[in-house]
Write a protein that binds this DNA or RNA. Sequence first.
DNA 1: CATTTCGCTGAACCCAGGTTAAGAAATCCG
DNA 2: CGGATTTCTTAACCTGGGTTCAGCGAAATG
Lengths: 192, 192
Amino acid sequence: MQDALRSHIERKIPLTDEEFAATMPFFHVRKLKRRQFLLQQGEVCRYESFVVGGCLKSYHTDERGDDHILRFSVEDWWAGDLDSFLHHTPSTISIEALEPVTLLVIDQPGLEQLYREVPKMETFFRMLNENALIATSRRVIADLSLPARERYERFLTTYPQIAQRIPLKDIAAFLGITPVFLSRLRREQAGF
Amino acid sequence: MQDALRSHIERKIPLTDEEFAATMPFFHVRKLKRRQFLLQQGEVCRYESFVVGGCLKSYHTDERGDDHILRFSVEDWWAGDLDSFLHHTPSTISIEALEPVTLLVIDQPGLEQLYREVPKMETFFRMLNENALIATSRRVIADLSLPARERYERFLTTYPQIAQRIPLKDIAAFLGITPVFLSRLRREQAGF
DNA sequence: CATTTCGCTGAACCCAGGTTAAGAAATCCG
DNA sequence: CGGATTTCTTAACCTGGGTTCAGCGAAATG
Protein backbone atom coordinates (compact mmCIF):
# COMPACT_ATOMS: atom_id res chain seq x y z
CA MET A 1 0.00 0.00 0.00
CA GLN A 2 2.85 2.32 0.81
CA ASP A 3 4.28 1.06 -2.45
CA ALA A 4 1.37 2.61 -4.29
CA LEU A 5 2.21 5.99 -2.78
CA ARG A 6 5.91 5.66 -3.35
CA SER A 7 5.67 4.75 -7.00
CA HIS A 8 3.09 7.51 -7.44
CA ILE A 9 5.54 10.07 -6.04
CA GLU A 10 8.47 8.65 -7.95
CA ARG A 11 6.62 9.06 -11.20
CA LYS A 12 7.33 12.75 -10.66
CA ILE A 13 10.43 12.84 -8.51
CA PRO A 14 12.83 10.12 -7.29
CA LEU A 15 13.18 9.63 -3.53
CA THR A 16 15.89 7.98 -1.48
CA ASP A 17 14.83 5.29 0.98
CA GLU A 18 15.48 7.75 3.81
CA GLU A 19 13.30 10.41 2.23
CA PHE A 20 10.47 7.98 1.76
CA ALA A 21 10.91 6.62 5.26
CA ALA A 22 10.71 10.18 6.58
CA THR A 23 7.60 10.84 4.51
CA MET A 24 5.50 7.81 5.31
CA PRO A 25 4.79 8.53 9.01
CA PHE A 26 2.94 11.71 8.06
CA PHE A 27 0.29 9.62 6.33
CA HIS A 28 -2.21 7.28 7.87
CA VAL A 29 -4.65 4.79 6.43
CA ARG A 30 -8.35 5.40 6.19
CA LYS A 31 -11.06 3.18 4.77
CA LEU A 32 -14.53 4.09 3.59
CA LYS A 33 -17.53 2.00 2.70
CA ARG A 34 -19.66 2.66 -0.34
CA ARG A 35 -21.74 5.87 0.17
CA GLN A 36 -19.66 6.97 3.11
CA PHE A 37 -18.46 10.59 3.13
CA LEU A 38 -14.84 11.65 3.22
CA LEU A 39 -16.03 15.24 3.51
CA GLN A 40 -19.40 16.93 3.77
CA GLN A 41 -20.11 20.33 2.30
CA GLY A 42 -19.87 22.89 5.11
CA GLU A 43 -17.25 20.99 7.14
CA VAL A 44 -13.61 22.00 7.19
CA CYS A 45 -11.49 19.66 5.08
CA ARG A 46 -8.81 18.33 7.42
CA TYR A 47 -7.02 15.92 5.06
CA GLU A 48 -5.55 15.60 1.64
CA SER A 49 -6.20 12.00 0.64
CA PHE A 50 -4.29 9.77 -1.72
CA VAL A 51 -6.51 7.09 -3.22
CA VAL A 52 -4.95 3.63 -2.93
CA GLY A 53 -8.05 1.86 -4.18
CA GLY A 54 -11.70 2.53 -4.98
CA CYS A 55 -13.45 5.54 -6.43
CA LEU A 56 -14.90 8.77 -5.02
CA LYS A 57 -16.88 11.70 -6.38
CA SER A 58 -16.34 15.33 -5.35
CA TYR A 59 -19.44 17.42 -5.86
CA HIS A 60 -21.05 20.71 -5.00
CA THR A 61 -24.71 20.88 -4.02
CA ASP A 62 -26.31 24.16 -5.12
CA GLU A 63 -29.11 26.14 -3.42
CA ARG A 64 -31.72 24.27 -5.41
CA GLY A 65 -30.34 20.98 -4.15
CA ASP A 66 -28.80 19.88 -7.44
CA ASP A 67 -25.43 18.13 -7.36
CA HIS A 68 -22.59 19.08 -9.69
CA ILE A 69 -19.65 16.73 -9.83
CA LEU A 70 -16.22 18.33 -10.10
CA ARG A 71 -14.12 15.21 -10.40
CA PHE A 72 -13.90 11.51 -9.82
CA SER A 73 -10.89 10.25 -7.87
CA VAL A 74 -9.73 6.70 -8.53
CA GLU A 75 -6.53 4.80 -7.70
CA ASP A 76 -3.46 7.02 -7.85
CA TRP A 77 -5.39 10.28 -7.64
CA TRP A 78 -6.01 12.65 -4.80
CA ALA A 79 -9.19 13.84 -3.16
CA GLY A 80 -9.80 16.88 -0.97
CA ASP A 81 -10.92 20.50 -1.00
CA LEU A 82 -7.73 22.53 -1.27
CA ASP A 83 -9.34 25.84 -0.35
CA SER A 84 -10.89 24.48 2.81
CA PHE A 85 -7.78 22.44 3.65
CA LEU A 86 -5.41 25.39 3.38
CA HIS A 87 -7.57 28.15 4.78
CA HIS A 88 -9.68 26.17 7.27
CA THR A 89 -12.86 27.50 5.72
CA PRO A 90 -16.08 25.51 5.35
CA SER A 91 -15.82 23.42 2.26
CA THR A 92 -18.09 24.00 -0.73
CA ILE A 93 -17.99 20.37 -1.77
CA SER A 94 -18.78 16.93 -0.49
CA ILE A 95 -16.64 13.88 -1.22
CA GLU A 96 -18.34 10.50 -1.20
CA ALA A 97 -17.20 6.95 -1.87
CA LEU A 98 -18.78 5.34 -4.92
CA GLU A 99 -17.06 2.06 -4.06
CA PRO A 100 -15.23 0.79 -0.97
CA VAL A 101 -12.19 3.04 -0.72
CA THR A 102 -8.71 2.87 0.81
CA LEU A 103 -6.90 6.15 1.41
CA LEU A 104 -3.62 7.48 2.73
CA VAL A 105 -4.39 10.81 4.36
CA ILE A 106 -2.25 13.68 5.63
CA ASP A 107 -3.38 16.71 7.63
CA GLN A 108 -2.31 20.28 7.09
CA PRO A 109 0.17 20.71 9.98
CA GLY A 110 1.62 17.38 8.89
CA LEU A 111 1.98 18.55 5.32
CA GLU A 112 3.76 21.74 6.36
CA GLN A 113 6.15 19.83 8.53
CA LEU A 114 6.70 17.35 5.73
CA TYR A 115 7.70 20.24 3.45
CA ARG A 116 10.30 21.27 6.02
CA GLU A 117 11.67 17.79 6.69
CA VAL A 118 11.61 16.53 3.12
CA PRO A 119 11.91 19.48 0.72
CA LYS A 120 11.47 17.20 -2.28
CA MET A 121 7.93 16.65 -1.12
CA GLU A 122 7.23 20.35 -1.52
CA THR A 123 8.48 20.01 -5.06
CA PHE A 124 6.24 16.99 -5.50
CA PHE A 125 3.14 18.84 -4.30
CA ARG A 126 4.06 21.85 -6.41
CA MET A 127 4.05 19.60 -9.47
CA LEU A 128 0.88 17.88 -8.36
CA ASN A 129 -0.95 21.18 -8.10
CA GLU A 130 0.47 22.35 -11.40
CA ASN A 131 -1.08 19.30 -13.03
CA ALA A 132 -4.35 19.78 -11.20
CA LEU A 133 -4.41 23.41 -12.32
CA ILE A 134 -3.81 22.39 -15.92
CA ALA A 135 -6.56 19.77 -15.79
CA THR A 136 -9.00 22.19 -14.18
CA SER A 137 -8.21 24.90 -16.73
CA ARG A 138 -8.82 22.44 -19.55
CA ARG A 139 -12.17 21.73 -18.03
CA VAL A 140 -13.09 25.41 -17.94
CA ILE A 141 -12.22 25.65 -21.64
CA ALA A 142 -14.31 22.59 -22.45
CA ASP A 143 -17.26 23.84 -20.41
CA LEU A 144 -17.17 27.17 -22.19
CA SER A 145 -16.60 26.00 -25.73
CA LEU A 146 -18.12 22.55 -26.19
CA PRO A 147 -21.78 21.52 -26.32
CA ALA A 148 -22.95 18.73 -24.03
CA ARG A 149 -22.60 15.92 -26.57
CA GLU A 150 -18.94 16.73 -27.24
CA ARG A 151 -18.18 17.08 -23.55
CA TYR A 152 -19.65 13.62 -23.16
CA GLU A 153 -17.59 12.16 -26.01
CA ARG A 154 -14.48 13.76 -24.63
CA PHE A 155 -15.23 12.35 -21.20
CA LEU A 156 -15.58 8.86 -22.67
CA THR A 157 -12.27 9.04 -24.50
CA THR A 158 -10.37 10.78 -21.70
CA TYR A 159 -11.55 8.51 -18.88
CA PRO A 160 -12.67 5.27 -20.49
CA GLN A 161 -11.84 3.26 -17.34
CA ILE A 162 -13.80 5.61 -15.11
CA ALA A 163 -16.77 5.81 -17.45
CA GLN A 164 -17.35 2.07 -17.02
CA ARG A 165 -17.42 2.14 -13.24
CA ILE A 166 -19.78 5.02 -12.77
CA PRO A 167 -23.56 5.32 -12.99
CA LEU A 168 -24.96 7.45 -15.80
CA LYS A 169 -26.56 9.93 -13.43
CA ASP A 170 -23.14 10.73 -11.97
CA ILE A 171 -21.68 11.24 -15.42
CA ALA A 172 -24.57 13.58 -16.14
CA ALA A 173 -23.87 15.49 -12.91
CA PHE A 174 -20.26 15.75 -14.01
CA LEU A 175 -21.13 17.03 -17.48
CA GLY A 176 -23.62 19.53 -16.12
CA ILE A 177 -26.68 18.03 -17.82
CA THR A 178 -29.63 15.95 -16.63
CA PRO A 179 -29.60 12.15 -16.71
CA VAL A 180 -32.63 12.32 -18.99
CA PHE A 181 -30.74 14.35 -21.54
CA LEU A 182 -27.62 12.18 -21.32
CA SER A 183 -29.80 9.17 -21.96
CA ARG A 184 -31.04 10.94 -25.09
CA LEU A 185 -27.48 11.65 -26.24
CA ARG A 186 -26.57 8.00 -25.84
CA ARG A 187 -29.52 6.84 -27.86
CA GLU A 188 -28.74 9.26 -30.70
CA GLN A 189 -25.11 8.19 -30.62
CA ALA A 190 -26.06 4.51 -30.77
CA GLY A 191 -27.94 5.32 -33.99
CA PHE A 192 -24.55 5.44 -35.71
CA MET B 1 8.78 48.32 -10.85
CA GLN B 2 10.83 45.68 -9.09
CA ASP B 3 9.11 46.98 -5.98
CA ALA B 4 5.80 45.82 -7.39
CA LEU B 5 7.15 42.30 -7.75
CA ARG B 6 8.83 42.28 -4.37
CA SER B 7 5.81 43.40 -2.43
CA HIS B 8 3.71 40.95 -4.44
CA ILE B 9 5.97 38.09 -3.36
CA GLU B 10 6.22 39.29 0.19
CA ARG B 11 2.48 39.26 0.52
CA LYS B 12 2.95 35.46 0.60
CA ILE B 13 6.45 34.97 1.91
CA PRO B 14 9.10 37.36 3.30
CA LEU B 15 12.42 37.60 1.45
CA THR B 16 15.80 38.86 2.57
CA ASP B 17 17.46 41.52 0.43
CA GLU B 18 19.89 38.87 -0.79
CA GLU B 19 17.12 36.51 -1.81
CA PHE B 20 15.35 39.23 -3.71
CA ALA B 21 18.60 40.36 -5.30
CA ALA B 22 19.21 36.78 -6.42
CA THR B 23 15.68 36.55 -7.80
CA MET B 24 15.44 39.73 -9.81
CA PRO B 25 17.99 38.90 -12.57
CA PHE B 26 15.83 35.98 -13.70
CA PHE B 27 13.12 38.43 -14.76
CA HIS B 28 13.20 40.92 -17.56
CA VAL B 29 10.90 43.72 -18.61
CA ARG B 30 8.53 43.51 -21.51
CA LYS B 31 6.03 46.06 -22.78
CA LEU B 32 2.99 45.57 -24.98
CA LYS B 33 0.76 48.03 -26.79
CA ARG B 34 -3.02 47.71 -26.80
CA ARG B 35 -4.11 44.72 -28.95
CA GLN B 36 -0.63 43.27 -29.02
CA PHE B 37 -0.29 39.56 -28.26
CA LEU B 38 1.75 38.14 -25.43
CA LEU B 39 0.94 34.66 -26.75
CA GLN B 40 -0.96 33.32 -29.74
CA GLN B 41 -2.90 30.08 -29.65
CA GLY B 42 -0.72 27.37 -31.21
CA GLU B 43 2.60 28.89 -30.14
CA VAL B 44 4.61 27.51 -27.25
CA CYS B 45 4.35 29.73 -24.18
CA ARG B 46 7.94 30.65 -23.28
CA TYR B 47 7.28 32.97 -20.32
CA GLU B 48 5.36 33.33 -17.13
CA SER B 49 4.55 37.02 -16.90
CA PHE B 50 3.93 39.17 -13.86
CA VAL B 51 1.74 42.14 -14.67
CA VAL B 52 3.20 45.40 -13.38
CA GLY B 53 0.60 47.55 -15.09
CA GLY B 54 -2.21 47.32 -17.64
CA CYS B 55 -4.67 44.55 -18.40
CA LEU B 56 -4.70 41.43 -20.57
CA LYS B 57 -7.23 38.79 -21.55
CA SER B 58 -6.46 35.07 -21.89
CA TYR B 59 -8.86 33.34 -24.25
CA HIS B 60 -9.42 30.19 -26.24
CA THR B 61 -10.73 30.36 -29.79
CA ASP B 62 -12.88 27.32 -30.64
CA GLU B 63 -13.29 25.56 -34.01
CA ARG B 64 -16.19 27.80 -34.90
CA GLY B 65 -14.04 30.86 -34.33
CA ASP B 66 -15.74 31.95 -31.10
CA ASP B 67 -13.58 33.32 -28.32
CA HIS B 68 -13.95 32.22 -24.70
CA ILE B 69 -12.13 34.26 -22.10
CA LEU B 70 -10.57 32.33 -19.25
CA ARG B 71 -9.28 35.23 -17.19
CA PHE B 72 -8.31 38.85 -17.13
CA SER B 73 -4.89 39.68 -15.72
CA VAL B 74 -4.38 43.13 -14.21
CA GLU B 75 -1.71 44.65 -11.97
CA ASP B 76 -0.30 42.14 -9.50
CA TRP B 77 -1.58 39.09 -11.37
CA TRP B 78 0.15 36.63 -13.64
CA ALA B 79 -0.45 35.70 -17.25
CA GLY B 80 0.67 32.64 -19.19
CA ASP B 81 -0.37 29.15 -20.25
CA LEU B 82 1.02 26.82 -17.62
CA ASP B 83 0.53 23.64 -19.63
CA SER B 84 2.37 24.99 -22.65
CA PHE B 85 5.02 26.66 -20.48
CA LEU B 86 5.86 23.49 -18.55
CA HIS B 87 5.50 20.90 -21.29
CA HIS B 88 6.52 22.97 -24.33
CA THR B 89 3.30 22.05 -26.10
CA PRO B 90 1.36 24.37 -28.41
CA SER B 91 -0.79 26.59 -26.31
CA THR B 92 -4.58 26.40 -26.46
CA ILE B 93 -5.01 30.05 -25.59
CA SER B 94 -4.06 33.49 -26.78
CA ILE B 95 -3.13 36.33 -24.45
CA GLU B 96 -3.73 39.85 -25.66
CA ALA B 97 -3.25 43.30 -24.16
CA LEU B 98 -6.48 45.21 -23.59
CA GLU B 99 -4.47 48.24 -22.52
CA PRO B 100 -0.78 49.17 -22.74
CA VAL B 101 0.93 46.62 -20.52
CA THR B 102 4.19 46.35 -18.55
CA LEU B 103 5.38 42.87 -17.60
CA LEU B 104 8.18 41.14 -15.75
CA VAL B 105 8.74 37.83 -17.52
CA ILE B 106 10.69 34.68 -16.64
CA ASP B 107 11.37 31.69 -18.88
CA GLN B 108 11.17 28.05 -17.89
CA PRO B 109 14.89 27.23 -17.54
CA GLY B 110 15.17 30.44 -15.55
CA LEU B 111 12.35 29.42 -13.27
CA GLU B 112 13.87 26.02 -12.60
CA GLN B 113 17.21 27.55 -11.78
CA LEU B 114 15.48 30.10 -9.58
CA TYR B 115 13.89 27.26 -7.61
CA ARG B 116 17.36 25.82 -7.01
CA GLU B 117 19.05 29.09 -6.11
CA VAL B 118 16.22 30.56 -4.04
CA PRO B 119 14.14 27.73 -2.56
CA LYS B 120 11.69 30.20 -1.06
CA MET B 121 10.67 31.04 -4.60
CA GLU B 122 9.57 27.47 -5.14
CA THR B 123 7.42 27.85 -2.06
CA PHE B 124 6.10 31.11 -3.48
CA PHE B 125 5.12 29.54 -6.79
CA ARG B 126 3.62 26.57 -4.99
CA MET B 127 1.35 28.94 -3.11
CA LEU B 128 0.62 30.93 -6.25
CA ASN B 129 -0.56 27.82 -8.06
CA GLU B 130 -2.54 26.69 -5.06
CA ASN B 131 -4.45 29.95 -5.24
CA ALA B 132 -4.87 29.71 -8.98
CA LEU B 133 -6.19 26.18 -8.58
CA ILE B 134 -8.67 27.32 -5.97
CA ALA B 135 -9.86 30.18 -8.17
CA THR B 136 -10.19 27.94 -11.21
CA SER B 137 -12.10 25.31 -9.23
CA ARG B 138 -14.49 27.99 -7.98
CA ARG B 139 -15.08 28.93 -11.56
CA VAL B 140 -15.91 25.36 -12.53
CA ILE B 141 -18.45 25.25 -9.71
CA ALA B 142 -19.98 28.54 -10.80
CA ASP B 143 -20.13 27.48 -14.45
CA LEU B 144 -21.88 24.28 -13.51
CA SER B 145 -24.31 25.58 -10.95
CA LEU B 146 -25.20 29.19 -11.74
CA PRO B 147 -27.28 30.59 -14.57
CA ALA B 148 -25.80 33.37 -16.71
CA ARG B 149 -27.36 36.25 -14.78
CA GLU B 150 -25.89 35.11 -11.49
CA ARG B 151 -22.50 34.47 -13.03
CA TYR B 152 -22.64 38.05 -14.25
CA GLU B 153 -23.64 39.43 -10.84
CA ARG B 154 -20.90 37.44 -9.18
CA PHE B 155 -18.38 38.72 -11.71
CA LEU B 156 -19.42 42.30 -10.94
CA THR B 157 -19.04 41.89 -7.20
CA THR B 158 -15.86 39.80 -7.36
CA TYR B 159 -13.99 42.02 -9.82
CA PRO B 160 -15.61 45.45 -9.60
CA GLN B 161 -12.40 47.19 -10.62
CA ILE B 162 -11.90 44.97 -13.65
CA ALA B 163 -15.52 45.19 -14.73
CA GLN B 164 -15.13 48.94 -15.24
CA ARG B 165 -12.10 48.71 -17.50
CA ILE B 166 -13.36 46.05 -19.83
CA PRO B 167 -15.71 46.16 -22.82
CA LEU B 168 -19.02 44.35 -22.45
CA LYS B 169 -18.29 41.95 -25.26
CA ASP B 170 -15.23 40.69 -23.37
CA ILE B 171 -17.26 40.23 -20.21
CA ALA B 172 -19.74 38.24 -22.27
CA ALA B 173 -16.92 36.10 -23.70
CA PHE B 174 -15.78 35.50 -20.12
CA LEU B 175 -19.23 34.52 -18.90
CA GLY B 176 -19.81 32.22 -21.86
CA ILE B 177 -22.78 34.13 -23.26
CA THR B 178 -23.29 36.44 -26.22
CA PRO B 179 -22.95 40.22 -25.94
CA VAL B 180 -26.55 40.46 -27.11
CA PHE B 181 -27.76 38.39 -24.20
CA LEU B 182 -25.57 40.22 -21.69
CA SER B 183 -27.01 43.47 -22.90
CA ARG B 184 -30.46 42.03 -22.22
CA LEU B 185 -29.44 41.00 -18.69
CA ARG B 186 -28.21 44.51 -17.99
CA ARG B 187 -31.42 46.10 -19.13
CA GLU B 188 -33.55 43.75 -17.02
CA GLN B 189 -31.32 44.41 -14.04
CA ALA B 190 -31.62 48.18 -14.47
CA GLY B 191 -35.41 47.71 -14.30
CA PHE B 192 -35.01 47.33 -10.54
C1' DC C 1 -38.40 -14.17 -2.67
C1' DA C 2 -41.45 -10.35 -2.21
C1' DT C 3 -41.22 -5.78 -2.26
C1' DT C 4 -39.74 -1.42 -2.28
C1' DT C 5 -36.49 1.54 -4.14
C1' DC C 6 -33.44 3.35 -7.63
C1' DG C 7 -31.60 4.09 -12.12
C1' DC C 8 -32.51 4.24 -17.08
C1' DT C 9 -35.43 5.33 -21.08
C1' DG C 10 -39.08 7.59 -23.88
C1' DA C 11 -42.17 11.14 -25.27
C1' DA C 12 -44.45 15.78 -24.89
C1' DC C 13 -43.84 20.16 -23.77
C1' DC C 14 -41.13 24.46 -22.05
C1' DC C 15 -37.57 28.13 -21.40
C1' DA C 16 -32.86 30.26 -21.09
C1' DG C 17 -29.98 31.78 -24.05
C1' DG C 18 -28.46 31.98 -29.14
C1' DT C 19 -28.94 34.05 -33.79
C1' DT C 20 -29.76 37.46 -37.06
C1' DA C 21 -30.44 41.95 -38.42
C1' DA C 22 -30.43 46.85 -38.06
C1' DG C 23 -29.98 51.25 -35.88
C1' DA C 24 -27.54 54.25 -32.25
C1' DA C 25 -23.36 55.39 -29.77
C1' DA C 26 -18.82 55.42 -29.03
C1' DT C 27 -14.09 55.13 -30.51
C1' DC C 28 -10.45 55.13 -33.50
C1' DC C 29 -7.45 57.48 -36.96
C1' DG C 30 -5.97 60.20 -41.01
C1' DC D 1 -12.68 67.59 -37.65
C1' DG D 2 -15.23 63.73 -40.37
C1' DG D 3 -15.50 59.14 -42.14
C1' DA D 4 -14.76 54.35 -40.87
C1' DT D 5 -14.85 50.87 -37.69
C1' DT D 6 -16.12 48.81 -33.63
C1' DT D 7 -19.32 48.35 -29.76
C1' DC D 8 -23.85 48.44 -27.62
C1' DT D 9 -28.75 47.94 -27.72
C1' DT D 10 -33.40 46.26 -29.26
C1' DA D 11 -36.45 43.21 -31.29
C1' DA D 12 -38.18 38.84 -33.59
C1' DC D 13 -37.51 34.37 -33.96
C1' DC D 14 -35.02 29.61 -33.09
C1' DT D 15 -32.90 25.56 -30.54
C1' DG D 16 -30.29 22.82 -27.03
C1' DG D 17 -31.19 21.14 -23.14
C1' DG D 18 -34.56 20.97 -18.97
C1' DT D 19 -38.84 19.24 -16.84
C1' DT D 20 -42.42 16.26 -16.00
C1' DC D 21 -44.54 12.04 -16.05
C1' DA D 22 -44.91 7.25 -16.99
C1' DG D 23 -43.11 2.49 -17.54
C1' DC D 24 -39.73 -0.93 -16.63
C1' DG D 25 -35.80 -3.61 -15.26
C1' DA D 26 -32.12 -4.21 -11.77
C1' DA D 27 -30.68 -3.84 -7.17
C1' DA D 28 -30.98 -3.19 -2.47
C1' DT D 29 -33.67 -4.41 1.83
C1' DG D 30 -36.78 -7.16 4.83
